[in-house]
């Protein structure tokens, strides 16, 4: 089972300088599944997510121990190109962060830096990505306007389109709907469900109902440790740890 995992960590620990933020985490993510990461604030969910595409590399003084594997290969090996990893493992951030560019150029950004110049091909890929992110109809007439003029939910879907445009294999989402209203949130959730056929999705959320609605698997993190991971309905109905149950039922955190 674990050999077929799309992405996997083995005994992974993470340090910000001297302080240990993640401890000995071993978890496997199967291809074409949605996994929710839940846990109280500060437990290390974002930190964990960012170890999966090496975003923590840009923070000085950080260190990873143990292994992080993508298709069975360690992504922290010396001969691995971090740029390649980040292309294969896309990321959507908590706050929508469109570039100060037009919507078209925003979504085309990742394609262009990969050397795609052909205008029609660019256009096709941008269109396909915006459609996949369920935002095409809302922006097709304003591709040459700034994404900053869109609503927060629309901006977030443009950001998802931008991440999809480079055809990642894994999609990391750090509370992608936490800055959005319920209707926009619902759209993002529908989108995640639609994307699960093609992508391995790992999503951080503070919203238990959301985790229950969208994910196949759920992992509970607490103080930098993985407390338990399993099928979402199991975690929500019969968690094996007391802590998980307390957290899910809202007794703490």
């Amino acid at each position: 089972m674990s050999t077929s995992a799309k992405m996997e960590t083995r005994n992974m620990s993470f340090y910000y300088g001297e302080s240990k933020a993640l401890e000995n985490i071993s978890i496997a993510f199967q291809a074409c599944r949605v996994t929710s990461l839940i846990g109280p604030s500060g437990c290390g969910k974002s930190t964990f997510l960012r170890t999966l595409n090496r975003m923590n590399d840009i923070i000085a003084g950080t260190r990873v121990e143990g292994e992080v594997l993508l298709d069975g290969r360690s992504i922290y090996d010396a001969d691995v190109d971090v740029v390649d990893i980040r292309r294969r493992v896309g990321m959507v951030f908590q706050k929508p962060n469109p570039f100060p560019k037009t919507i078209f150029n925003d979504v085309a950004y990742g394609l262009r830096i990969r050397g795609l110049r052909n205008r029609t091909e660019l256009y096709d890929r941008v269109e396909a990505s915006l459609k996949a992110a369920a935002i095409w109809d809302e922006v097709k007439d304003r591709l040459n306007e700034s994404a900053l003029g869109l609503s927060g939910g629309q901006q977030q879907r443009v950001c998802i389109a931008r991440a999809l445009a480079v055809e990642p294999e894994v999609l990391l989402m750090d509370e992608p709907a936490s800055a959005l209203d319920p209707i926009a949130t619902q759209k993002i959730e529908e989108l995640i469900r639609a994307l699960r056929d093609r992508y391995t999705i790992i999503i951080v959320t503070h919203n238990m109902q959301q985790a229950a609605r969208i994910s196949d698997e759920t992992a509970f993190l607490y103080m930098g440790k993985l407390v338990e991971v399993g099928k979402t309905d199991m975690i929500f109905t019969k968690p094996s740890c007391r802590r998980t149950e307390d957290y899910i039922t809202g007794r703490f955190g």
Binding site: M55, R87, V166
Partner: peptide, 9 residues
């Protein structure tokens, strides 16, 4: 971060 996460150098 958005740019780096897309695989930009």
């Amino acid at each position: 971060e958005a740019s780096l996460a897309l695989g930009a150098t």
